[in-house]
């Protein structure tokens, strides 16, 4: 919204999987543009294509129709240019590498110098509040800390876009609240464009500037809500009428998507 420049633009995007039980419409006619610096959440029941859409942006899936550009390029070109960092549902840290070495992994692959690697590891560890844990192995850390390390890994090579696929889905609610707060602070500091898949309404409303409500069979967008909430968001904003109002609209959108079939 703020800069008004679209970094991700989807037009009439379709994706059909061929399976034994016939074709499945994972995405139908998805039209969306995401501007620089936005925090966009994708919410919907399982099978609505929210993860699939994120994977299309990351060139991990190939759409079967329509157009999709990332930074004005095809998703695959964007991937080759290392345009985004991706955070998966599970931390997926390599158990044979320390936290610092895990964060260095993309840097090694992208050919950064040893000194540059050290500096960047230090920076991102500080960003996610993990100073002093660089020498630990992932299995010596709690689940929340592991997920923070995986966010640090995605931040390490300074991509403008951060794609997060239910990154906090496996964590308990207390840890999750804490990480949500931290993520907002991080977003404010780094001014990245974030695409965030979730199935928690409060999480989506709390984090996002734009909420994309999706529904399944076929996977499609049913509502796009621009959040009226201020950028500055303490945790107790969730008790304000504005917050509850947005949450209500999201819930309505989800219900409308469902009523199609029931």
């Amino acid at each position: 919204m703020t800069n008004g420049k679209a970094v991700i633009e989807a037009n009439g995007l379709n994706l059909t999987f061929q399976t034994n039980d016939g074709p499945i419409h994972a995405l139908r006619d998805v039209r969306l543009s995401i501007n620089k610096g936005e925090f966009v959440s994708f919410i919907g029941p399982s099978g609505c294509g929210k993860t699939t859409f994120l994977r299309c942006i990351a060139a991990l899936e190939a759409p079967t129709g329509g157009t999709l550009t990332v930074n004005g390029m095809t998703p695959d070109e964007a991937r080759q240019n290392r345009a985004y960092g991706y955070v998966f549902q599970a931390a997926g840290l390599y158990p044979w590498r320390t936290i610092a070495k895990n964060i260095k992994l993309p840097l090694e692959i992208m050919g950064y110098s040893a000194k540059e690697q050290e500096d960047r590891v230090r920076n991102v560890l500080e960003l996610v509040d993990l100073e002093g844990f660089g020498g630990k192995f992932p299995w010596q850390l709690s689940g929340g800390m592991q997920q923070r390390a995986s966010i640090a890994r995605a931040l390490a090579f300074d991509a403008d876009i951060l794609l997060m696929d239910e990154p906090f889905g496996a964590l308990d609610e207390i840890v999750r609240d804490h990480l949500n707060e931290q993520l907002l602070a991080l977003w404010a500091r780094t001014e990245k464009t974030i695409g965030f898949v979730t199935h928690s309404i409060p999480e989506a409303v709390y984090l996002s500037t734009k909420i994309v409500v999706m529904s399944p069979r076929p996977g499609r967008i049913t509502d796009v809500i621009d959040s009226p909430l201020p950028k500055e968001r303490p945790l107790d904003i969730r008790d304000t009428p504005e917050f509850i109002e947005v949450a209500h609209r999201v819930r309505e959108g989800l219900r409308a998507g469902h009523s199609d079939e029931e």
């Binding site: 991937r79 985004y84 998966f88 549902q89 997926g92 390599y94 692959i109 992208m110």
Partner: peptide
């Protein structure tokens, strides 16, 4: 795992990079 392979994919890692850094260990 598929997820670990996807991660290497998002880094646009070459075959041998993903072999040496992921699959071999």
């Amino acid at each position: 795992t598929v997820m670990q392979r996807d991660l290497m994919e998002t880094y646009a890692a070459t075959y041998w990079q993903s072999f040496l850094k992921l699959r071999l260990p």
